[in-house]
């Protein structure tokens, strides 16, 4: 059965409004996108939606109390909550530098959690 789905591409702040023509679970055509990332996004969003997780963790002995972190690449959307819950109770030690790996494998997603900020020792 053919159907048309409306999406807003979130690959960049342009937020292109996509029209995706689908038959069963196959994408026939994507329109409304200003660049090729729209097609990639539509494919992903309708088959395996993913998101970047960003969060914050407490840090001891640093010039700041908290350090910001993110998943190095996107993780499955439906696992975002599970991943963020796994960070509960985690406390880091200063110093931490931008890009430092905090967690090697976030809940078996194969994606690492990295620092997005440098917090030097007090």
């Amino acid at each position: 059965m053919k159907e048309t789905k409306q999406l807003v591409c979130i690959s960049c702040p342009m937020g292109c409004r996509l029209e995706v023509e689908m038959e069963d679970k196959t994408i026939l055509q994507v329109s409304g996108n200003l660049c090729s990332r729209g097609i990639v996004y539509a494919n992903k969003e309708l088959t395996n939606p993913t998101r970047i997780l960003t969060s914050i963790l407490p840090i001891i002995g640093g010039v700041e109390e908290m350090v910001s972190v993110k998943s190095k690449t996107d993780i499955p959307k439906n696992r975002v909550f599970e991943c963020v819950k796994s960070l509960k109770g985690l406390v880091l030690q200063a110093p931490i530098h931008v890009g430092d790996v905090i967690v090697k494998d976030l809940c078996g997603t194969g994606v690492s959690l990295v620092a997005t900020k440098t917090v030097l020792k007090k």
């Binding site: 960049c12 702040p13 970047i52 960003t54 969060s55 914050i56 910001s68 993110k70 931008v98 997005t116 900020k117 440098t118």
Partner: peptide
Amino acid sequence: CIHNGFGLHTFKEELTGPEYAA
């Protein structure tokens, strides 16, 4: 602004606020 979405135009990659600042 620890979320991502910064720098796509300036650095051609998606950064978080602190990374863009850094």
